[in-house]
Design a protein around this nucleic acid. Structure first.
Length: 1134
RNA sequence: GGGCUUGUAGCUCAGGUGGUUAGAGCGCUACACUGAUAAUGUAGAGGUCCGUGGUUCGAGUCCACGCAGGCCCA
C-alpha cells in the first residue's frame, strides 16, 4: 500500500471530504448500530430554540456534548443521541409580533380593527419557529456534531404535548399542581396584569410624591424578646418604613437582614411623647434621629417644647438575633388562619433607605410573598361570596368591607376621579391611615417622599403589585428530596452543583407554571366558577370527557331547557370530529373551545393559562419518546441520562426543570453527570452581541479554519466552565502549532514509508523489547498518554485531555522522537532498526488519531484512514486503545528527560561561547553523586552525543575529589522540626563548609549548634567543576570541554563543507537518491587538509562517487562562502 | 443587594496537601539548521502573582476586607 501524500493541506477541505465519507458510509449510524447489545450511555440533548441564528458559543456547547458521546462510543457504549427543538415561548411570540408590527393587544381582536385571530397568530408562530432549522442543521453537520436530526423531538407536536399533559395530570393527582397566586404588576383601572415587558416600556416609571410612614410594631414579651425588654416596662417597637401605607393592614411579618447590625434605641414617641424603645438598623440611625438629641436630656423632655427628642443607643445586635420575635398586629382588621406577625430573615433587606426592617405583606409584594412562603408566614386574606380567598384590596383597587372604616376606599388617590380629588375634604387613604396610626401611638414618622413608581401604559395610573391567579407545582413539598437527590449528581464544576444549584434548591419556592400567552402548551385543566375541576392527561381522556359532557349537556338541555348550551354542544361535536380523524391541534384556540360539564352540571372551561416553556424542555426525557403512550421500553432504558451539558445559565432553567420533574414524578435524578459550560466572550472579554457587532459567525470560522482547529481551540484554550475569550488568532495558532505539526509528522512518515515500500497492518512485527531506547521511550510516553487522556475524559475534562495530546505530539513525538530518528529512516538498506522506527511512528500516529478523535473528529479520521489499510473503516468505529502498562518504563522516561536537559545545557554553553553545533567537541563531563543518575544518563549518552555533537559523555563522581559541592536547606522537612528557628537553621546550613558536608554525607547526620540534621534535611548538589565551562539547572550540572584540537577543527570544516554541498544539491533540484561527483578548487591548505582527512565521511554524507581537488576549474565553478574560506566547486549527477 | 465565579509575562493559560529562584505556548529579539523546508531547533528579554490587612519561621497558594470583570437571581 502507499500512504497518501499531500502538497498543501486545506483543513476545511479535509473536513468536507471526511463529511462526505461519513455520509456515504453512514458512519454515525454505524457507530450506534455496531454497539447494539452493549451497555448504553444515555445523553439528553437540551433543545435549542430554532428561532435564532446559531452563534459560535453553540459550537462550543455542542462540541462538549459531542466529545463525550464520541468518547463513550469508543469505550464500547451505545450512545443514542436524539436531537430536539424548543419551539414554544415568548421570544417566538415577540418575533412574530415584530414581523407583523403588532402588539399583544391586537391578538384576538377582529381584523377590521387591525387585529389578528389567535388561530392565525399561532399559525405564524409555528412557521417562524422552524425558520432557521436549515441553518442549524447545516452548522450541526459542518462542525461535526453527531446527533440524530432525522427524528428530533419537537415541543409543539401533539405527541409531545400529550406527554406533557400526562405528566401534569400525574402531578395533579398527587396534589402537587394547585391554583394559587403570584404578585404581579396589575392595573386596576385596566383590569389586567402587566408583563415585565410592558413595565419596561419608556415613560412607565414616573416620580410621585407619596405619604410614607415609619410604623411602630409593638414587640410581644417572650423569651426571645428578652433581648429587647426594658427594666421599667417601657414598651419596645420595631420600626419599619413603607411608601405604600395602604399595604399595612395586610402586614403579616417583618423582614430583617441576617448580617445587618441593628440597635435598640431608648427615646420618645414623637407624636404621643410616651417613652419607648425602638429597633432599627444601626446604619440608619442618622436618617431618623437628630444628632443633637443623642444621649440628651430624658428627664427634662416632658417639660420641654419637645422640639428635640433625646435618644440613646442601648444595645447592638445582628438581624439574626431578632429572628422569631413576635409583635402585635398593627391594624387588626383581618386575622390570618395561621400564626403570623413575627420577625423573619430575608436576603433582599438593605440599609440604603428606610429602617433596615421591611414591612412584609405577602399579598402585595413579590419579595414579601417569596420570603413569607419560605418561612411559612400566611397572607392576610378574606373570603368572597364563593368562599374563595381574596386579598383585602379588590380588583378595582378598593379595600374590601372587612377593613373597617377604610372599606370601599381606593387605595391610591389617583384612582379617584379628578372631581373627587378636588374636594377640599378629600383625604387620600394613605393619609387617613397615617392619622390613625399617629393617634394610636403606632407611627414614628410620617412624611412625603418623592420616588419613581411604575404606571400603567394604558391608563397612566399607578400600578399595584397584586396577587393574580397562577398555577403552581408544589416543588416545596419535595424540596428535601430534591436537595438529597442533587447530592448524588456529579456536577462539573462542582461549585455549580453545591453553590448555584444547591442554594437555589435550599431556597426553593413553588414553581409558577402559568403564562398568559398564546403560543405554548395549554394547561389541561377545566374548571367551573364554583371550583369544580378536571385535569386531562391524554387525548383519549379528552375525548372521553367531551363525550361524557355532551351526554350531560343533552340531558340538561332537555330537562332544564338550557338552550344556551347548544352552541357549546356544537363546538364539542366539532372537536370530537377532529379527535376522530386526528386533525386535532392541542394548541389554543382549539382547546379553549372545549366545554366540559361537571358532575353537578356546572360548565367547566379551560383555565386560560399556558404553561412555562421550561416545563416543555424539562419534560423531554419522557416527551421525546411520547412516553407513556409509545416507546415505554426505550424510555426505561434511556432514563435517567448519564450525561447532559448546557450553559451555566441553564442552572435554574433546564437543569432545574429536568431535576424537579424527575424528582417529583420518579423520585430519581434526571441526569447523573452534568457539565455546565461558561460563556464565550469576545477577545476583550465582552459579551458577544449583535448590537455591539462583536459576534462571531460560526460559519465563517468553520469555512476558514475547518471544524477541527475551531473545536480544538475552543476546548483546549480554557476549561469549558470558565468563560472563554474567543480570539480568532488562537485558532490559527492551534492550526499551525498542533495540526501543522501533526500533519508534518505524518507527511514525514508517508514520504519515507512510500520510498521504502513500508507495509504494515498495525500488528507489531518487531517486539517492543527489541526496539532501541528511543522507540521504547516514545511508546512508554504513548501509554502514559493513553492513561492520562482516558482519565481526563472520564473526569469530563476535555481541556486537559486535549492539552496532554498536544504536548505529546509537539514536544515528544515531533520535536524529539522524529527529529532524532530521521537518520534511521534515511537508511536505504532493509534493517530491523528502520522497520522498528516505522512501526513505532505508525503506532504513535494511529493511537493519537484515536485519542484525539472525540475532539477533532474530521482530522482524526483523515489521519487514521491515511494510516490504515481498511479504507472503509473510520476511527469513530474503532475502540479506545487500551494502555499497555507494561510498556511504561518510568526509568527510561527519566533517562530521556535527563538527556534532553543535558542537551539543552550544552546548547546553552555552546551558545554562550559562540561554538556552533557543527563544530564537534571532545566531551561533556557530568558530575554525578549517585549511581542511578549515572546509569540513567549512560543509557542516553549516544543520543546526547549526536544531539549536541560531542564525542563522549563522561562522568566524574565524588571519588575524583575535584567536585565542588553546594548545600541547600530543605525547608519542607526542616519546617516541622525547627519551626520558628528556621532562619537560623537555614543560615547555618548555607554556611556549612565542604568539610561539614563530607561529615554529613559520611555519617548521614550532623549535629549543629541549633540541632541535628539528616541527609533528608538538605539538598547537596554540585555546581562547579574547577577549570571547566559549567552550566546547571536544578540538580543537574554539565561541564563542557571547549578545546578545539586541530583534528576537531578539520572535522568541523568537513561538516561545514557537507552542509554547503547539500545546499547545492538542493538548489540544483537533485533527487534525494542521486549520486554525484564533486570537483573542488584547491585554494586553501587548511580547507584541503580538512577535506582529505574526512574524505570518506564527506562522500558518504553527500553521496559522492568522487571528490577531486584541482588547481583550476576553468571558470565554471560555483562560488560559496564558508566562514573564512571561499569554495569554488562543481557538482554533477553521475 | 444576594449567590456563584474569574483576576499570574504584551496575549492565552499551567501552577496536588503553604517551602524560599513562579512556569508553558504565542508574540518579540538574536542565533542555528537546511534530506519534515511556506517546516524545524536553541537561547534571551519580559512578572508589585488585582489591592490591603492577617495567620505562619515561610503565602501566588490559607483567612478577612476591598477593587475589577462575568453569569444567575432580586
Amino acid at each position: 500500500m502507499s500512504y497518501k501524500e499531500y502538497k498543501n493541506l486545506n483543513y476545511a477541505q479535509v473536513a468536507d471530504d471526511v463529511l462526505q465519507f461519513w455520509k456515504a458510509n453512514r458512519v454515525f449510524e454505524k457507530s450506534v448500530e455496531t454497539r447494539d447489545g452493549q451497555p448504553t450511555f444515555t445523553f439528553y440533548e437540551g433543545p435549542p430554540s430554532a428561532n435564532g441564528k446559531p452563534g459560535i458559543h453553540h459550537v462550543m456547547a455542542r462540541a462538549i456534548k459531542d466529545i463525550f458521546c464520541r468518547y463513550k462510543t469508543l469505550q464500547g457504549f451505545q450512545v443514542k443521541r436524539k436531537g430536539g427543538w424548543d419551539t414554544h415561548g415568548l421570544p417566538i411570540e415577540l418575533q412574530v409580533e415584530k414581523e407583523l408590527g403588532i402588539t399583544k393587544d391586537h391578538i384576538g381582536k377582529p381584523a377590521s380593527e387591525g387585529g389578528i385571530s389567535v388561530e392565525e397568530y399561532n399559525r405564524r408562530c409555528r412557521e417562524a419557529v422552524m425558520k432557521f432549522t436549515d441553518l442549524w442543521n447545516d452548522l450541526t453537520e459542518k462542525m461535526g456534531y453527531w446527533v440524530d436530526l432525522e427524528n428530533p423531538y419537537v415541543t409543539y407536536h401533539n405527541e409531545y404535548i400529550e406527554s406533557l399533559w400526562y405528566l401534569l395530570k400525574k402531578l395533579y393527582d398527587q396534589g402537587l399542581l394547585y391554583k394559587g397566586y403570584t404578585i404581579q404588576p396589575y392595573s386596576p383601572k385596566a383590569g389586567t396584569g402587566l408583563s415585565s415587558h410592558e413595565l419596561n416600556m419608556p415613560g412607565t416609571y414616573k416620580d410621585v410624591k407619596d405619604t410614607t410612614i415609619v410604623a411602630m410594631f409593638r414587640v410581644k414579651p417572650s423569651e426571645k424578646a428578652q433581648l429587647l425588654a426594658s427594666a421599667d416596662g417601657t414598651p419596645s417597637y420595631i420600626l419599619a418604613w413603607t411608601t405604600t401605607p395602604w399595604t399595612l393592614p395586610a402586614n403579616s411579618a417583618l423582614t430583617v437582614g441576617k448580617d445587618i447590625d441593628y440597635v435598640l434605641v431608648k427615646t420618645f414617641n414623637p407624636y404621643t411623647h410616651e417613652p419607648v424603645q425602638v429597633v432599627l438598623a444601626q446604619a440608619l440611625v442618622g436618617r431618623w434621629f437628630n444628632e443633637k438629641g443623642q444621649d440628651g436630656d430624658f428627664e427634662g423632655y416632658a417639660a420641654s417644647d419637645k422640639k428635640l427628642t433625646p435618644w440613646t443607643i442601648l444595645k447592638t445586635f445582628k438581624g439574626a438575633d431578632l429572628e422569631g420575635i413576635e409583635y402585635e398586629q398593627l391594624l387588626p382588621y383581618v386575622q390570618p388562619e395561621k400564626p403570623a406577625f413575627r420577625v423573619i430573615l430575608g436576603d433582599f433587606v438593605t440599609t440604603e433607605d428606610g429602617t433596615g426592617v421591611v414591612h412584609t405583606s405577602p399579598t402585595f409584594g413579590a419579595d414579601d410573598f417569596r420570603v413569607a412562603q419560605a418561612n411559612g408566614i400566611p397572607p392576610i386574606m378574606v373570603r368572597d361570596e364563593n368562599g374563595k380567598e381574596v386579598p383585602i384590596v379588590d380588583r378595582q383597587g378598593r379595600f374590601v368591607q372587612e377593613i373597617g372604616e377604610f372599606g370601599g376606599r381606593y387605595v391610591k388617590e389617583q384612582y379617584y376621579s379628578d372631581e373627587e380629588q378636588a374636594d377640599p375634604e378629600f383625604r387620600p387613604t394613605d393619609v387617613l391611615i397615617a392619622i390613625k396610626l399617629k393617634e394610636e401611638g403606632k407611627a414614628f414618622r410620617v412624611e412625603k417622599y418623592e420616588h419613581p413608581y411604575p404606571h400603567c401604559w394604558r391608563t397612566d395610573k399607578p400600578v399595584l403589585y397584586y396577587p393574580l391567579d397562577s398555577w403552581f407545582i408544589r416543588t416545596t413539598a419535595k424540596k428535601d428530596r430534591l436537595v438529597e437527590l442533587n447530592k448524588t449528581i456529579n456536577w462539573i464544576p462542582e461549585s455549580t452543583g453545591t453553590g448555584r444549584f444547591g442554594n437555589w434548591l435550599e431556597n426553593l419556592v413553588d414553581w409558577n407554571l402559568s403564562r398568559s400567552r398564546y403560543w405554548g402548551t395549554p394547561l389541561p385543566i377545566w374548571r367551573s366558577e364554583t371550583g369544580e375541576e378536571v385535569c386531562i392527561g391524554s387525548v383519549a381522556e379528552l375525548k372521553e370527557m367531551v363525550e361524557l359532557s355532551n351526554r350531560r349537556m343533552i340531558e340538561l338541555i332537555k330537562a332544564e331547557n338550557r338552550t344556551e348550551w347548544n352552541a357549546y354542544l356544537e363546538k364539542n361535536n366539532s372537536i370530537i370530529q377532529q379527535l376522530n380523524n386526528s386533525t386535532i391541534d392541542l394548541h389554543r384556540p382549539y382547546v379553549d373551545e372545549v366545554y366540559l360539564l361537571s358532575e353537578s352540571g356546572k360548565l367547566m372551561q379551560r383555565e386560560p393559562d399556558l404553561i412555562d416553556v421550561w416545563f416543555d424542555s424539562g419534560a423531554m426525557p419522557y416527551a421525546q419518546w411520547h412516553y407513556p403512550f409509545e416507546n415505554k421500553e426505550i424510555f426505561d432504558k434511556a432514563y435517567p441520562a448519564d450525561f447532559i451539558s448546557e450553559g451555566v445559565d441553564q442552572t435554574r432553567g433546564w437543569f432545574f426543570t429536568l431535576h424537579a420533574i424527575a424528582g417529583m414524578l420518579n423520585d430519581s435524578v434526571a441526569f447523573k453527570n452534568v457539565v455546565s459550560t461558561g460563556l464565550v466572550l469576545d477577545k476583550n472579554g465582552n459579551k458577544m452581541s449583535k448590537r455591539l457587532g462583536n459576534a462571531v459567525d460560526p460559519f465563517d470560522t468553520l469555512a476558514t479554519y475547518g471544524a477541527d482547529a475551531t473545536r480544538w481551540y475552543l476546548i483546549t484554550n480554557a476549561e469549558p466552565w470558565d468563560n472563554l475569550k474567543f480570539n480568532i488568532d488562537g485558532i490559527g495558532e492551534v492550526q499551525r502549532r498542533f495540526f501543522g505539526t501533526l500533519y508534518n509528522t505524518y507527511s514525514f512518515f508517508a514520504l519515507y514509508a512510500n520510498l521504502d515500500g513500508f507495509d504494515f497492518d498495525g500488528r507489531r512485527t518487531i517486539p517492543v523489547s527489541e526496539r532501541p531506547e528511543l522507540d521504547r521511550w516514545i511508546l512508554s510516553k504513548l501509554q502514559s498518554l493513553i492513561l492520562e487522556v482516558e482519565q481526563q475524559f472520564e473526569d469530563y475534562n476535555p481541556t486537559k485531555a486535549g492539552r496532554a495530546i498536544q504536548d505529546f505530539v509537539n514536544d515528544h513525538l515531533s520535536n524529539w522522537y522524529v527529529r532524532l530518528s530521521r537518520r534511521r529512516f534515511w537508511n536505504t538498506a532493509e534493517a530491523p532498526d528502520k522497520r522498528a522506527a516505522y512501526e513505532t511512528l505508525h503506532e504513535c500516529l494511529t493511537t493519537v488519531s484515536k485519542l484525539m478523535s472525540p475532539i477533532a473528529p474530521f482530522f482524526a479520521d483523515w489521519l487514521y484512514r491515511n494510516l490504515t489499510k481498511e479504507t472503509d473503516l473510520s476511527v469513530h468505529l474503532t475502540e479506545f486503545p487500551p494502555a499497555e502498562r507494561d510498556l511504561i518504563d518510568t526509568d527510561l522516561e527519566t533517562s530521556m528527560q535527563l538527556g534532553q536537559d543535558i542537551s539543552s545545557l550544552v546548547h546553552s554553553l555552546r551558545k554562550g561561547h559562540k561554538i556552533k553545533v557543527r563544530q564537534p567537541l571532545t566531551k561533556v563531563l557530568i558530575p554525578v553523586l549517585n549511581e542511578t543518575t549515572r546509569r540513567q544518563i549512560e543509557h542516553v549518552a549516544p543520543i546526547i552525543q549526536s544531539e549536541v555533537n560531542v564525542k563522549a559523555v563522561e562522568f566524574i563522581d565524588d571519588a575524583s575529589g575535584i567536585l565542588k559541592k553546594k548545600i541547600k536547606p530543605n525547608f519542607k522537612t526542616l519546617g516541622p522540626k525547627f519551626g520558628p528557628k528556621m532562619k537560623d537553621v537555614a543560615a547555618t546550613i548555607n554556611a556549612m563548609t565542604e568539610d561539614d558536608i563530607r561529615k554529613l554525607e559520611a555519617a548521614g547526620s550532623l549535629s549543629l549548634a541549633i540541632g541535628e540534621i539528616t541527609m533528608q534535611d538538605v539538598e547537596i548538589r554540585t555546581e562547579d567543576v574547577p577549570g571547566w565551562l559549567v552550566a546547571s539547572e536544578g540538580s543537574l550540572t554539565v561541564a563542557l570541554d571547549v578545546t578545539i584540537t586541530e583534528e576537531l577543527r578539520r572535522e568541523g570544516i568537513a561538516r561545514d563543507f557537507v552542509n554547503r554541498i547539500q545546499n547545492l544539491r538542493k538548489d540544483r533540484d537533485f533527487d534525494v537518491t542521486d549520486k554525484i561527483t564533486i570537483t573542488l578548487e584547491n585554494n586553501n591548505a587548511v580547507l584541503s587538509n580538512a577535506i582529505e582527512a574526512n574524505r570518506p565521511y564527506i562522500c558518504r554524507e553527500v553521496q559522492a562517487q568522487s571528490l577531486d581537488l584541482v588547481t583550476d576549474l576553468n571558470g565554471n565553478a560555483t562560488e560559496i562562502e564558508m566562514d573564512e574560506f571561499l569554495l569554488r566547486v562543481k557538482i554533477e549527477v553521475v
